[in-house]
Amino acid sequence: MVYLSLTGVLFVLGLHGLFTARNLLRRLLSLNILTTSVFLLFVVMARLAEPLDNVPHAIVLTGIVITVSTTAVALALVVRIAGRMREEDVGAAADTRGDVE
């Protein structure tokens, strides 16, 4: 199957991006690609099974919702961290205790 190979390629691409990228957002994209490769593996399994297996479909649906949750949390963190970095760069009165409103 073409898609089985794609799973492996995406897995390696995702890992590579995660470890070599320095930008926080880009690491997040790599992680998402890695996750997609796992979902792809599940669905390929479902497709290869005889008859078509619906359990992996449900699993991947659950996984997609979880991934968007974790991505959203990560993005919110990245934005706060980047905001803080800029504040420190500018040398503005950096709030060292960090409870920034």
């Binding site: 897995f11 995660l18 593996l41 974790t70 949390v73 963190l77 961290i81």
Partner: peptide, 24 residues
């Protein structure tokens, strides 16, 4: 707050990578 948010980010990335590899 503060530097803990950067620590939280690193923890998040490590733990998400861990669970993704586990899920594979």
């Amino acid at each position: 707050g503060g530097s803990a948010q950067a620590a939280a980010w690193r923890y998040l990335l490590a733990t998400l990578l861990g669970s993704t590899i586990y899920l594979f």
